[in-house]
């Protein structure tokens, strides 16, 4: 149909390629933390008692709360992606906002947790830590390094999701004028992408020539969706790493 041939959907973007690139990047992130996990396992096997004792002083309640918060945010980011796929921008906006709020809540908890540690004199190179057994110093060294770098990733993730939220919420509908076209081809009202085709101009459709106005969420549908999915993948990575940090630091006591 000539209406579709005239539609501006000539994207050369390779979304599969983008996803491959994202997955490869996630590999590198896992290897980044891999170095820390390596140090953790070596030092844990060297100082099992010290690690055991030091871990009992971490606040399991806050850790559990943060785990639940992050897991929930992973759910909401998936819902946001699904909503966008169904072209429901409002729901997508809400779900993204919830995800970002959850991330912020995680950071607030983290802040209080670290603050408490600093208050009782537990911070890198503190007198209190150096007074304790070497394994405890290493445990807290790893604790700050691992949760610190993880928190950095949470912040980056929040930045990425905020940009995505802005894009989804603010990008205006794209309006493209096509035509003039022959009126006998105006059978299409809504195409598969959910784009709405309306006619503009004075005349009725019955008239010979009208101008078509193409209103669509084109950018949202293709590119934005791919970007949001990749941002979601990154957010899942943040979540998955926390799922490993939580038992290693808080639960094995």
């Amino acid at each position: 149909m000539s209406v579709q041939a005239a539609s501006p959907a000539t994207h050369h973007k390779d979304h599969t390629g983008a996803r491959i690139g994202m997955w490869l990047f996630l590999f590198t992130e896992i290897l980044l933390f891999g170095g820390l996990f390596l140090l953790y396992s070596v030092y844990r096997s060297t100082f099992p008692e010290d690690f055991h004792y030091a871990a009992t002083h971490l606040d399991t309640l806050v850790g559990t709360a943060n785990t639940l918060i992050l897991l929930t945010s992973s759910l909401t980011v998936v819902l946001a992606i699904a909503a966008l796929r169904r072209n429901n921008r409002k729901l997508c906006t809400i779900m993204l906002s919830v995800t970002i709020l959850a991330g912020l809540l995680f950071m607030v908890n983290k802040y209080f947790e670290w603050h408490h540690k600093f208050d009782i004199g537990l911070y890198p190179n503190s007198k209190e830590l150096l007074r304790r057994a070497p394994g405890e110093n290493l445990f807290y060294g790893l604790y700050f390094a691992m949760t610190g770098i993880h928190a950095l990733h949470v912040i980056i993730g929040l930045g990425v999701l905020s940009v995505m939220l802005w894009i989804v919420a603010h990008k205006p509908k794209k309006t493209i004028t096509v035509g003039p076209l022959q009126s006998d081809r105006l059978s299409l009202v809504e195409d598969q992408r959910g784009a709405v085709w309306t006619h503009e101009g004075e005349g009725e459709i019955a008239e010979a020539v009208v101008t078509l106005v193409y209103k669509s969420n084109e950018e949202i549908n293709d590119d934005t969706w791919s970007k949001l999915e990749n941002s979601g993948l990154y957010w899942h990575l943040v979540d998955v790493i926390w799922i490993f940090l939580f038992p290693l630091l808080y639960l094995i006591t």
């Binding site: 896992i30 980044l32 933390f33 170095g35 820390l36 890198p124 110093n137 060294g141 700050f144 390094a145």
Partner: peptide, 22 residues
């Protein structure tokens, strides 16, 4: 391989600035 260097170098920076002691 590069991410492993990245974390190693980060830890050297942390050692120098924070004194983690790892």
């Amino acid at each position: 391989a590069t991410p492993v260097l990245a974390i190693t170098l980060l830890l050297v920076i942390a050692e120098r600035t924070l004194g983690l002691g790892l």
